[in-house]
Design a binder for these strands. Structure first.
Length: 460
RNA sequence: GGCCGGGUGGCCGAGUGGCUUAGGCAAGGGCCUGCAAAGCCCUGUACGCGGGUUCGAUUCCCGCUCCGGCCUCCA
């Protein structure tokens, strides 16, 4: 499989350290506030990668961390009058719920920063010992100029970087960044060789990735906004420690609010996942977030959502109708090509193209259904569903909705009464009566379809 | 100012030096239906601007322009 690599800025084959196994580290959220749809896009984009690697027969170790201590968590918790760990625990739960809502596969390991302080300290000690980091009044900084490759991930020239605000009193060079921050009063802290303090933002990922994937691993992913400084700094630290670190860097695009501006909490334009789910069924949300290319920007708008809803409904209708029709039928020859789908996915996860294959399969399948060519339909349906499963969009296994409720048999029985009454009316050619019954059901959100095999109903 | 990505038909969005249509949504026509619904078939409008290379460029090269991201916390 080929993927765009941020460092080399080219689509190139994903070369695995170990045959048949992929080790992936993904930067998860800082659990400071409730997740917005941008966070979910991140998780879904990487979930498509995760699922495709699994579908390709690979064993995947997928590590996604949780940053559960940092400045903002501490500040917000203080503002709330609650302990910092209470806030981060609550928000961690909110993120897990958000991920679950769109069926993001759980990571193999989900390490928290606070659970890896010893590993972080050990890594910093190594950097201090080899002279690439230095302690300064209880803080520890990485000496960026000691890392010759600094800038290679983000393609930045260190000399051209705009210097940040001058809190540089403790730094030897303004480019240097903190590995360890000494504790201020009322802040959480852990004991260290440099005094009580806590990890800087970047060092955690370097330490946890190595803990679970080894000093060199296959793939590191995250949002485009993490390229600089976070991933640049991670790479610098790990390189300075003598680690090979990530062989391939993957970054996904961001969600923008309507109008094109990036969605983020600090810009105040974010849409919470919980709010999005009130207006949009989870399967449609999954479609909207998971069917655009992972590197593209996605605009969050009603248009996108309604088009996603329409496209997903088409797929859902086909799968439902076809599944009913082919029960017990021996599969014949499929009208869709798994190879075509796989080739698209292998090509830098070209989901748009892969989705075109699915839609072609749906159209062919609908034609087979109309023609009553059931063996071919059964085979086509199976292939389409296999493809949908990769995107987590199979209406039967991934999103069993109205059909699975405990109330369904009850509603079905009630609808049958109306359907039978309407059948009588149609028998008498009393179209006024028949249509009145259908209209009343429609008003209640139930759509009837007269098919060759009988009357079918669905919720709309 | 530096670095990255992008401007494709009404909308979203793949892709390619000419060859066969991406795909979805929307629109128009037809078929099916008592009428619908679902579905199938058909139809149309494309490749930001200006140069260059080429027999031929939306697709390669150069310049311009517009949009977004990063250079500060951020998925």
């Amino acid at each position: 499989m080929r993927l765009y690599d941020t460092r080399t800025r080219v689509v190139r084959p994903l070369q695995l350290q170990r045959e048949g196994h992929v080790g992936i580290y993904v930067c998860g959220p800082t659990v400071q506030a409730r997740p917005h749809v941008g966070h979910l896009r991140s998780a879904v984009a990487l979930d498509v990668l995760h699922r495709w690697l699994l579908a390709s027969g690979l064993e995947v170790t997928f590590v996604r961390n949780v940053t559960d201590v940092d400045d903002k968590i501490i500040n917000d918790a203080q503002a709330n009058g609650e302990p910092w760990w209470a806030l981060s625990t609550r928000m961690t739960r909110a993120f897990t719920q958000a991920y679950d809502s769109v069926h993001v596969l759980p990571p193999t390991v989900e390490p928290r920063v606070t659970g890896h302080i010893p590993q972080i300290i050990a890594l910093i000690e190594l950097l201090v010992a080899n002279g690439t980091a230095y302690a300064s009044e209880g803080d520890v900084y990485l000496s960026v100029r000691s890392v010759p490759t600094y800038g290679e991930i983000s393609n930045q020239n260190p000399d051209a970087l705009r210097q940040g605000a001058a809190d540089a009193s403790l730094k030897r060079d303004p480019l240097d960044f903190a590995l360890w921050k000494s504790a201020k009063p009322d802040e959480p802290s852990w004991p260290s060789p440099w005094g009580p303090g806590r990890p800087g933002w970047h060092i955690e990922c370097s330490a946890m990735a190595v803990e679970y994937l080894g000093t060199t691993f296959d793939l590191h992913g995250g949002g485009l906004d993490l390229v600089f400084p976070h991933h640049e700094n991670e790479n610098a630290q790990s390189t300075a420690a003598g680690h090979g670190f990530a062989r391939h860097w993957l970054h996904h695009g961001l969600i923008t609010a309507a109008g094109g501006e990036k969605m983020s909490k600090s810009l105040g334009n974010s849409v919470l996942v919980t709010d999005a789910l009130e207006a949009t069924p989870p399967a449609v949300l999954r479609y909207a977030l998971g069917t655009s290319h992972y590197r593209s920007t996605v605009e969050w708008s009603d248009t996108v959502l309604s088009e996603s809803a329409a496209a997903y409904a088409r797929i859902e209708t086909f799968v439902r109708n076809a599944t009913e029709a082919v029960a017990g039928v021996e599969p014949g020859e499929s009208k869709v090509s798994w190879e075509e789908f796989a080739a698209a996915m292998d090509d830098d996860l070209n989901v748009s193209s892969a989705l075109a294959t699915i839609h072609n399969g749906v159209r062919a399948g609908n034609a087979l259904l109309a023609a009553g060519e059931l063996p071919a339909l059964a085979a086509t349906l199976a292939e389409v569903r296999r493809m949908l499963a990769v995107l987590c969009l199979d209406p039967v296994t991934d999103w069993p909705t109205s059909g699975s409720s405990e109330l369904t048999p009850v509603v079905d029985a009630l609808v049958q009464l109306a359907v039978e009454a309407r059948a009588d009316a149609r028998e008498r050619k009393d179209w006024t009566q028949a249509d009145a019954l259908r209209d009343r059901l429609a008003a209640a959100g139930i759509t009837l379809e007269d098919t060759a095999g009988g009357v079918r109903w669905r919720l709309t």
